[in-house]
Design a protein around this nucleic acid. Structure first.
Lengths: 348, 348
DNA sequence: AGGCGGTGTGTAATCGATTACAAGAAGTAA
DNA sequence: TTACTTCTTGTAATCGATTACACACCGCCT
């Protein structure tokens, strides 16, 4: 099979082996119906004999596309993103596209430049999961429409008008807080996301709004700072534990903080949910297995990934004119409230 | 800045704008010292004016390389891999290479074919984190040496002689079990990894060996099946809880199973570590925040990723001859035992 | 026989960057 | 002035696949 030699077989080798021209080989591969039965078989045989695989660089150069999409996400180490990636990877792999993952954390220090390859001629599309990228990193100064098609998922940048796949964060927060209210809680606190995150405000506002609509108020000292990390959840627990005027329930902007919060409280012998109820956001795998299992807003993460991927594929099929003509859709996916053990009526 | 027009600026546009030839532009970019001061400045100015970025497809076609490495991993949704990826991405991004991530789960059903682009002419190197891939998927039938350089990390395929980055799983298991023995445990069980995984046997053997070396035996009924999932951990807990002849300590082949195990036990009012001690493997972020916090083998996941990446870069710089001449190294990274709350002396 | 439509195939241009080679300019030594 | 470096630049071939265009061939109709 194939000479043990040096370089990979090219389409010319196949053409030679099959006794046809390179054009015919190419046609056989891309559009088998136009070649005759006998040629087709000869070509397929030659491909098998030579072990030929198409050179994507050459194809991409010629077709002016790259066969790859880039995913920009803030932190690859965060398990929240892994299922989203999984959904994206699934759809893209079906579409025959490869997925290029780029952690944007290094870019923060390395200023506002994206890696060289996330460029209109190196990827066919971009999915952005990071709302804190600098706007000028994502748009070409002179001509924004040249940039590869782009969609946002989960987070977004308000100034950039592109399709967004998200959940209704405010509404979800309302649901979470209403659940606590219906259990009888009147003193409800919140652990916030990072200050510069687009989601932080809407989750906080949703919670505040739900309280206000029943004539209650969320005291400022019940609003704990956070940054989506386990650590910040346990910090909040320390504050909660150290203060006298405590909420009886805490709604957390993400599961990691909720679990960090509960962990620290349990360690301090504060019983959840007997002494304080906790609601999370995201429904990480761990949420259902933690003790107590976590009542949380269930974000359909795989669906978010799949939807963003499909939306991007759709936009990639459009011409730039069509893209800018058609308004960027905003897909809002439904959430569920998963009620588990971490919420109960307030003490007393 | 750049006409609002249709296609991305090419090297010819830059050459034209700077009044030089394309060769000079190319040289300015790849080897600035060989062009004169004045030309260099003119070219850089023209690049800025046109907004030129190199077309990687063209470069790769010409240079016969791709500027990308592929990572094959069994399950993108598993948080265990995210930090490893993070380490890989960090090193690769410094080296100017892009990282192409491929979840191998779909390949299991889609038979033994890797995605089209993971081919010697579409990536410059491959990092494999999945020991269950079929061997013929990774090697070309006729000429294995044509395939892009490859390294294994964490898991590997014994029949394929390639560099491996791993920890000493057997030794780590010995450490874990010795810790339990030193606490006074004599009845120690094990939750296994999936049967077809390379790590499963070494972790089980390590545990068994540690028992045997002090004249103890691990009863077959204390060996619980598992598959690295939270769920399988709670299944094991049900079996443990339902049997009369129980081990007083259980060493789990991964943290997820350990946490699932503890979660289910706690739910059944079995106190950990008072009634049963638990040791995990991996040191997921969650391990330290769980209640009780988990005693576990700490795998340096980011370092594993970085090391694998550096090893791959090194192999990529070698000629195929050098690669096959030099034996494939096996890098064994040290683990630590993180003693936390989930282990204590046996009851009574 | 001449013309026409349809198939199937080959020829050659093309995508954009790199680089071997050649050639011109400028400087130095004889 | 000629010969010979040294430095800088341009010309053109090349990487491998795709595809517009042309052409050869076959069968069929008038």
């Amino acid at each position: 099979m194939g000479k043990s030699g040096s370089k990979a077989p090219s389409i010319r080798d196949v053409a030679h082996a099959a006794g046809v021209s390179t054009a015919t080989v190419s046609r056989t591969l891309s559009n088998p119906d136009v070649v005759s039965e006998t040629t087709r078989e000869a070509v397929f045989l030659a491909i098998r004999e030579t072990g030929y695989t198409v050179n994507l660089a050459a194809r991409n150069l010629r077709k002016r596309e790259t066969g790859a999409v880039a995913i920009l996400l803030p932190n690859l180490a965060n398990p929240f993103f892994s299922r989203i990636l999984s959904g994206i990877a699934e759809v893209m792999s079906e579409a025959g596209l490869s997925v290029l993952i780029s952690d944007t954390t290094p870019m923060a220090k390395d200023d506002h430049r994206l890696p060289e390859y996330v460029n209109q001629n190196n990827v066919d599309g971009i999915i952005v999961l990071d709302g804190n990228l600098r706007q000028d990193a994502l748009l070409n100064r002179g001509s924004p429409e040249v940039r590869a098609p782009m969609v946002f998922a989960c987070e977004w940048i308000s100034q950039i008008d592109r399709p967004i796949v998200t959940v209704d964060n405010q509404e979800a927060s309302v649901r979470a807080v209403q659940h606590l209210l219906s259990l009888g809680h009147r003193r409800i606190g919140h652990i916030c996301g990072p200050p510069d995150n687009v989601l932080t405000a809407s989750r906080l506002e949703g919670a505040r709004g739900a309280m206000q609509s029943v004539g209650l108020r969320m005291k400022p000292e019940w609003i704990y700072p956070g940054d989506f990390s386990l650590q910040s959840g346990s910090e909040a627990a320390k504050i909660w534990h150290g203060s006298s005027d405590r909420p009886t329930a805490v709604y957390c902007a993400c599961d990691e903080m909720a679990l960090g919060f509960i962990g620290e409280l349990t360690r301090r012998k504060v019983a959840v949910p007997q002494e304080v109820s906790v609601v999370g956001f995201d429904d990480l795998d761990m949420a259902a297995h933690f003790v107590p299992s976590l009542t949380t807003i269930c974000q359909p993460r795989v669906t978010i990934g799949r939807t963003a991927a499909r939306l991007l594929l759709e936009r990639m099929r459009m011409t730039p004119q069509e893209r800018s003509a058609r308004p960027a859709p905003r897909v809002v996916l439904p959430v569920k409230l998963a009620v588990r053990e971490s919420t109960a009526p307030p003490p007393g």
